[in-house]
Design a protein around this nucleic acid. Structure first.
Lengths: 108, 108
DNA sequence: ATACATGTTGACATAATGTGTCAAAATTAG
DNA sequence: CTAATTTTGACACATTATGTCAACATGTAT
């Protein structure tokens, strides 16, 4: 059996597992974020949308790689858009080409 | 100068150019779609969200490759999610790996 | 120029969705 | 058991999306 490179975790699940590792409670972290702990609970379980700002604050609170969390956060949003579309992967490739094109042509 | 493979057109712009090629009016196409022509106008210009259903109906009306339009439609939505994020392209790659993983592991 | 077809824009009411707050119920740990 | 933690749902409110419509602008032909 090989180690799985691709994470099957959503950003919410990832944030939860990090919080557990740090042995922090929802109440504690939520208070640091200045939000209701019920909302954080729902964010971790994918019932409420997570914002970029929350991800960055949690990266800071948990002392965790912010870029890695942001990439997971963004890929979550991307995957949500293609859901179970048969053409999802092809659309991802086209999107990547278009993104590269935009990046290469944008002025500083 | 080389031909550009990557389309810089949005799905709306593409649908408009197809309609122009077919020499159809907003009013005519909108009536076939059973929607107000003002909405179709806004969809073509990116002011209103386009649904998958509308894309498929237009592919039928225009006798245009539905898959190609769907891929453009989906890539539009994907690009909207990553907007001008620095980590956008990396997130796209991660999303693609995750999508492939899901596809490979899903039961029939 | 008028007359007519086409396309754009904004206002408006309504529908749908998202958000914060809270409390009760459920779960877990000691 | 008690206590801490988490989950769930209800609710009011805000934000956003949607359909309808009319006014305005543009273009074309005669």
């Amino acid at each position: 059996m090989s180690t799985c490179i691709v994470s099957t975790e959503t950003i919410g699940e990832k944030l939860r597992s990090i919080r557990k590792d740090k042995e922090l409670t929802l109440r504690k972290v939520a208070s640091l974020l200045d939000i209701d702990f019920a909302i954080l609970s729902k964010m971790e379980r994918g019932e409420r949308r997570i914002t970029k700002e929350v991800v960055l604050k949690l990266a800071d609170i948990y002392k965790y790689d912010a870029e890695a969390l942001l990439v997971l956060f963004l890929s979550d949003k991307i995957l949500f858009e293609i859901q179970d579309e048969d053409l999802g992967i092809e659309a991802l490739k086209v999107a990547e080409e278009r993104a590269k094109f935009v990046k290469a042509n944008k002025k500083k």
